[in-house]
Structure formats: structure tokens, C-alpha cells
């Protein structure tokens, strides 16, 4: 468990801090590791979504959305997991290529926002642990 310095670390309000701290026994380093791994996996996967949509690989797109969906939850961002669930449901309806691309365009800002939240929070924890 990480030794606590004179200031107590507070996770940003967008994150379900209580859930994360309970999951990792208050181990901030473990939370940071989850953020880094999840950020990497989510970035890699989401970068393939447009290519898959443009090539009509909708079933594969749906499968890949499903695969990484829980990572948002493991980062304490359940709202983002719910959004991914909605995306997965949408791709399950076998939309046309153009509808799939439009949907991905709509979702792009929120995926970016989520990834940025995770990245910044990981940096924040690492800075705190260096103190």
C-alpha cells in the first residue's frame, strides 16, 4: 500500500474514487497502472474503429467495442462504459457503413474526452507518488 504523505490524494470528481480505492485497497500505484494499461488498450482499439466501419466490418467493430468496454468501468468511469454499451447495441443492429461512420463521428469527442481524463489522472497520481 502506498504511504500517504501530508496531503491526501483526491481522485478527480469524474472518477468513482470510492470504487477504485476499494478495488485496489487504496493502492494508488495500482490504480495508476490500470489507467496506463487501459489508456493504451482503449487508444489502440478505438483507432481501428473508423477503418473497420469504412470496410463494412461492422460485426468485428461491435466485437472490439465489447472487448474494451469494461476498461472504462475499471477506470472508475461508468458513464463511459454505458456509452460504449450503447455503441455496441447500435452496431449489433447491423447499420449501414455510412450510419456506422456517422455514429463514430458523433462518439469521437467523448472517446477523446475519456482518454484524456484517464491520461491526465495517471499523470496526476504519478506526480503525487513522486512527492
Amino acid at each position: 500500500m502506498q504511504a500517504i504523505s501530508d496531503t491526501v490524494f483526491q481522485l478527480s470528481s469524474q472518477f468513482d474514487g470510492m470504487f477504485l480505492l476499494e478495488m485496489h485497497d487504496n493502492d494508488l500505484a495500482a490504480i495508476s497502472d490500470i489507467f496506463i494499461t487501459s489508456h493504451q488498450q482503449l487508444s489502440e482499439e478505438s483507432s481501428k474503429y473508423f477503418w473497420l466501419a469504412e470496410n463494412g466490418e461492422i460485426a468485428e467493430l461491435k466485437r472490439r467495442v465489447h472487448l474494451v468496454k469494461p476498461l472504462w468501468g475499471y477506470c472508475g468511469l461508468s458513464e463511459f462504459q454505458d456509452k460504449f454499451q450503447q455503441m455496441e447495441n447500435f452496431f449489433s443492429t447491423n447499420p449501414t457503413i455510412s450510419d456506422a461512420i456517422i455514429r463514430l463521428e458523433e462518439e469521437k469527442p467523448f472517446i477523446r474526452e475519456g482518454l484524456e481524463l484517464i491520461r491526465m489522472e495517471a499523470i496526476k497520481i504519478q506526480e503525487y507518488l513522486k512527492q
Binding site: 478495488m23 490500470i34 494499461t37 472487448l67 474494451v68 469494461p70 476498461l71 475499471y74
Partner: peptide
Amino acid sequence: EDLSVAADV
């Protein structure tokens, strides 16, 4: 479990 984060937790 195919998701390593989930398996680790």
C-alpha cells in the same frame, strides 16, 4: 478472461 485488466483484478 481475455481482458488482462479484468483478469488481474
